[in-house]
Design a protein around this nucleic acid. Structure first.
Lengths: 175, 175
DNA sequence: ATATATATCTTAGTCGCTAAGAGATTTAGC
DNA sequence: GCTAAATCTCTTAGCGACTAAGATATATAT
């Protein structure tokens, strides 16, 4: 039993470590937003724009889980800060594309340099093969957590008397 | 050069994967808060209480980065929800310890079951030795990002004219 | 004993969010 | 084509969580 017990302890330790490091990653992001002088959601949207390129306001709402009204505010702030531009779609004039003002990518990017350098240093202590192992684990973990999130969300929609009650406050906000 | 180039690509891919999975982890937490019907910060505090046990209000403020005023609100809500109790320190009557009401740990804990099961399944595909590698990487990464966060924070305190300017708040007028 | 430090709470004001619905445009049905 | 419904973004009202500053209570130092 000592073997499986050691493994159980290892799993628990790993979970704690992952939680800790993940939380710290979030904190780094919040600090970036802070230094850049923009709100957290604003930075998240910049991240999406960086990944996906030119997207509509509706798509931002979809990905972030915010309402379209909130996105209007986000884009207002980002536009006022000169980080993005609104571009009306000429094909479908209801739509508004949000496009990053190119120069600003570098301006925001500089704030990630400290972390990138730190992580590169850490990675230097690992072989290619080890890094591939990490990559595989990350990807598998991502899929697993994504599925778990969906499973949990379904609880929201199950009738309250059918689900494990906590009798806290009222209806939680949906996202 | 093909060797180092491959590694650079690997590093980049790993970074993206970590960001993605980390973000998903956060989303899972938000969903838990949603289902439980409490605010995000409230759940974060429950997490800290679970990890550290009985802690003072001030300690919560310190760890979360919130002001003490905000923590008063958090604890008010959690206490009203029956999740924690305030306990005045008899040795130093200025201090207020926040203690989790024991039964509620299980109530909140159940929401983490989907993720724990999913992650355990993933971990089953790895040997003890591989998991130890993952653990080591997590811990090293945590320390690195923590240090990077501190480094970035210091930018806030450096005089604005001395640091890489973004002049966001002040409307860089164009057009 | 008085002044200073520490720990929490209170208050006023701000910001970003949601919900609901208005406005503008496109698509579908007849 | 013309009307009705659908789609996409923005507006408005209200709310909840946050900060900053200071009040309150207690502890420590001189």
């Amino acid at each position: 039993m000592s073997r499986t017990k050691a493994r159980a302890a290892l799993l628990q330790e790993l979970e704690a470590a992952m939680r800790r490091s993940s939380a710290q990653g979030v904190l780094y992001g919040q600090t970036v937003a802070n230094v850049a002088g923009i709100a957290n959601s604003d930075l998240e949207c910049m991240d999406i724009l960086y990944l996906e390129g030119r997207v509509t306001a509706g798509r931002l709402a979809e990905v972030t889980g915010l309402t379209t009204g909130a996105i209007t505010g986000v884009v207002d702030r980002l536009e006022k800060a000169g980080l993005v531009r609104r571009e009306r779609d000429e094909k479908d004039r209801r739509k508004v594309f949000i496009a990053v003002v190119p120069e600003t990518i570098a301006k925001l990017g500089q704030f990630y340099v400290p972390m990138q350098q730190a992580m590169e240093k850490v990675c230097n202590g690992y072989s290619d093969e080890e890094l591939r192992l990490l990559l595989r684990f990350c990807n598998e973990g991502y899929k697993a957590v994504l599925a778990a999130t969906e499973a949990l969300k379904r609880l929201i929609d199950t009738p309250p008397e059918k689900r494990p009650d906590l009798k806290l406050k009222k209806r939680p906000r949906q996202s």
